[in-house]
Design a protein around this nucleic acid. Structure first.
Lengths: 349, 349
DNA sequence: GTAGGTTATGCAAACGTTTGCATTTTTGGC
DNA sequence: GCCAAAAATGCAAACGTTTGCATAACCTAC
């Protein structure tokens, strides 16, 4: 009665007059156990309503069959898609996935990293906060040779396996596209430079300007967290005085959408007066009118790669030092009406 | 060397010439331990790089400080928002959250439920698949008095704590609104009736028709998984022959958006010729042109309630049979241009 | 019938904690 | 200084598995 309802392999063993080792092996289909015994054991397990205790097994084996996924937030399209794919893939291979959100707070990221370590996860995949520049809280994973993979928001100068988009090429491609569309005065709204991927996009942006002999003006670039509010404030600054820019490269689609709305309010025509390009190809970019040109980062592919990297690292013998690959996921400019005066075209590489 | 790098409380105890019990208590701030000893122990723990092993503690305590969250998918706006809130809330209280996706597959749901039980999670929150009508796989949680909360997609005839939206009222409100806007021939695209929330919305729909003496025609209602493809196919049927309906109540926004696009293609004007209302107030509904009238289900509030229910149940003494509350989260019709000929209004209760 | 080899099962330790109870140490009042 | 009470620490069992090694049971062939 009371709370002693949990059956264990000991109960099965007693019930059957077998030893616990035999029961354990039978349940795990160990080759040394006869087919008849296995049958008996499994039947009794079912009858008693036995449920394995993963914590006990994990403690003994020193592996939890659980992997951690640490992302800024799962309510945003891009990380959500990646998380979905990673989780489904690992689930197929018998792993549980603990998804944690840092909410873009460095402190939370550190705390969660420690908690995940305490749970003795078998591997960890991370997309860092915007502000993470010190990565020492991940050392514990490296030191103990626990597979560690970073994706999208990846560290700079920290030797580790990485899966990321080609942000330099992205910045370059977007800027070239705007220039080809006739823009001569382009604003770039970037994320904070503490996050290396924005550094690269900015580099691509500057490089394209240089190639086309367009002077780079410091006043035409903004570094900020890419929220709706911040985007609105940036617009207020940008359109406070003439001349208005003729192109804006926003580092995410939330920002691009906000700009579009601001333009609607102040009667700036898009794309005639101003061309806008976003980033990440959020579903909203396709649906809004005019559609917003954006950069597809193939989140599903990125998720597949992350999952594959984790699985790969996990099946390597523990002692081996990890090989630290850096995988580059391609990007693709998706042209839409916000940057093209002609027709709305959906696909073009 | 090799793999013996993991320090335990035993190491701390030896290093300090104390017993493991004292170390354990010191680390857990047990009142019986002197301040000086606590200080010493914590210092040594830091020095040795000690990391608690949650599995060992969990095994001993019979609680894992982990809770499970089982949802159809996290890449959809509504469940994603709820998951975010639940996770953040529980994280604040020192719990880990394992988020799992059933991908709307009953088999996966069953498998994941069992895995989560094996992990000895301290509580489980579930939004079921569209097709779950047998809930016996959750019995194990009930039988062992482990807090179990269902939300949004909740069971019918299964005694358990529930947090849900007022779907009957939602169906009623939407339909009334369409009628007030002059619609006389309304189509309803519903999810499958295996999912009780759609049953309720349909009931609300029918009730509103009845109240306004509009005959209900079986051919004007569709039951299907609410995907883009299915929505498109439904449109093909709906617009295959005259007369066209003058209003459509879609049970999610993906469907509503697809209908809007179809209408654009066949030159049916929205809202002049046809009024459309969706459900869930997906961010896309606000952004598309015309904006789509939808029903806000306050996912953040639902998440809060779910988290609160879990925490509440967890702090009840284990023996107590659970009280099975049913909480109703309000809904609010968000009127937009897709159903109103006049102006676009953003808010109206 | 026995040796030799398979095949199947059992013993017991180990994984890293926590905790009830026993024991030791400290404290304070006289 | 002494004693009782209070405070601090230690002992050892327990949580539910897995697994190396030892042992028992069963064949097969001579």
């Amino acid at each position: 009665m009371s709370k002693r309802t949990e059956k264990t392999i000991v109960d099965i063993a007693e019930e059957l007059g077998l030893s616990v080792s035999t029961v354990s092996r039978a349940l795990n289909d160990h080759p040394n156990i006869s087919a008849r015994t296995k049958e008996k054991v499994k039947k009794m397990a079912r009858k008693l309503g036995y449920r394995p205790n993963a914590m006990a097994a994990g403690l003994r084996n020193n592996r939890s069959k659980t992997i951690g996924l640490l992302v800024p937030r799962i309510s945003m399209f891009f990380p959500a898609t990646i998380s979905t794919v990673v989780q489904n893939k690992l689930q197929e291979h018998g792993y549980n996935v603990i998804i944690c959100q840092s909410n873009d707070s460095y402190e939370q990221e550190v705390a969660l990293t420690n908690t995940l370590y305490s749970a003795r996860i078998d591997a960890l995949a991370v997309s860092t906060t915007l502000y993470t520049t010190d990565f020492s809280h991940f050392d514990i994973f490296k030191d103990n040779n626990i597979p560690l993979v970073f994706f999208d928001r990846v560290p700079k100068d920290y030797d580790v396996t990485v899966v990321k988009g080609d942000d330099y090429l992205g910045g370059l491609t977007v800027t070239r596209h705007l220039i080809e569309q006739g823009c001569k005065d382009i604003v770039h709204i970037s994320g904070p430079l503490t996050c290396s991927l924005y550094v690269e996009r900015v580099a691509g942006f500057k490089h394209a300007l240089k190639q086309h002999k367009i002077p780079f003006k410091k006043s035409r670039i903004f570094y900020q967290e890419l929220t709706r509010d911040n985007a609105w404030q940036a617009c207020e600054k940008i359109f406070a005085q003439r001349p208005y820019p003729d192109g804006i490269f926003a580092a995410n689609d939330t920002t691009a959408i906000t700009i579009l709305e601001y333009c609607r309010m102040i009667n700036v025509r898009v794309p005639e007066d101003l061309k806008i390009v976003g980033y990440s190809n959020d579903p909203r970019a396709e649906i809004i009118n005019p559609g917003i040109t954006s950069v597809d980062q193939f989140p599903a592919m990125m998720g597949e790669r992350v999952a594959a990297a984790l699985l790969d690292l996990m099946q390597q013998p523990r002692r081996t030092p990890q090989r630290h690959a850096a995988e580059m996921v391609p990007i693709q400019l998706i042209k839409r009406a916000s940057s093209e005066v002609k027709a709305t075209r959906r696909k073009k590489s």
